[in-house]
Design a protein around this nucleic acid. Structure first.
Lengths: 139, 139
DNA sequence: TACCGACTTGGAGTGCACTCAAAGCAAGCC
DNA sequence: GGCTTGCTTTGAGTGCACTCCAAGTCGGTA
């Protein structure tokens, strides 16, 4: 609300945090690899704050929106459930007070991720071994 | 059909390849972590050869069945599509001639897996970085 | 002025991988 | 015999994450 709160938020966002409405949905599609459908759907479920609109009602996304979407895409790549991402987005909207909760959420996901990497690597070994078996049998 | 074909198959299967019908569906549930529903469904879609039956018509799975299911579970853990696993299972049923195709299928999946591990590790770095950011801000 | 392509909406549809319901059978135990 | 537990079947239902549809508006170019 006050400048005292607004300032740290500004810092948090970093250099990519420009709020100027710039990009059409089509440009964001190109930049993020998400579809226009998915962008609207993300907005509807609260994963994305409703972006600015042009005078004719078309969405105009900012750099801040785009970098948030890029972060979301990375999380999706790790199969984080959309519901968890919504939770994170909600906390983010609620401001500075929730940063401990957000940190906890990320730490939890980091654990999940580390375990999954370990699982994948273990399975990779099994597959390597099967492939070797087939290779030996061939000659 | 002939012994000349049966022998290499026997070798391929290794020590875990006992075909004796042993385990009820409940026991296989405990051993594999899959549900009974899922086991029946796997059978229906051709992922699992129809197992032996008791005199009263109940399924009796062999060690061979169980180790195949354990392998399938590992593949599922890596999010291999069920359709691909069905393809692999089909090739396996068709016998020795398909081992090159099976090898190719596994090699393809290995590539997918390697890429995914790399993606996850990259995202892990991003998350680490975010967590550090929250940590610094807290004190 | 005509046209094209990009954009808008809400609600319905899709594909995947299960997951469950309902109704019934069989075995083991008191 | 009665009860419980575990199994059987087919077909329908679920949850997730999109994905598409229809019908319309808007901006820019020829």
């Amino acid at each position: 609300m006050s400048l005292a709160i607004a300032l740290p938020l500004e810092e948090e966002r970093g250099p990519e945090a420009d709020d100027t409405p710039r990009y059409t949905i089509g440009e964001v599609v190109t930049r993020t690899g998400l579809t226009a459908h998915t962008l609207r759907w993300y907005e509807r479920i609260g994963l994305l704050e409703p972006p600015a609109r042009s005078h004719s009602g078309q969405r105009r996304f900012s750099d801040r929106d785009v970098s948030w979407l890029e972060f979301l895409s990375k999380l999706r790549l790790t199969a984080m459930p959309v519901a968890d991402m919504v939770r994170y987005a909600q906390l983010r909207r609620e401001g500075e007070d929730t940063s401990a909760a957000r940190k906890a959420l990320l730490e939890e996901h980091r654990e999940v991720l580390r375990n999954r990497i370990a699982d994948l690597q273990a399975t990779l070994l099994v597959i390597d071994c099967k492939i070797d078996m087939y290779a030996e049998r061939q000659q």
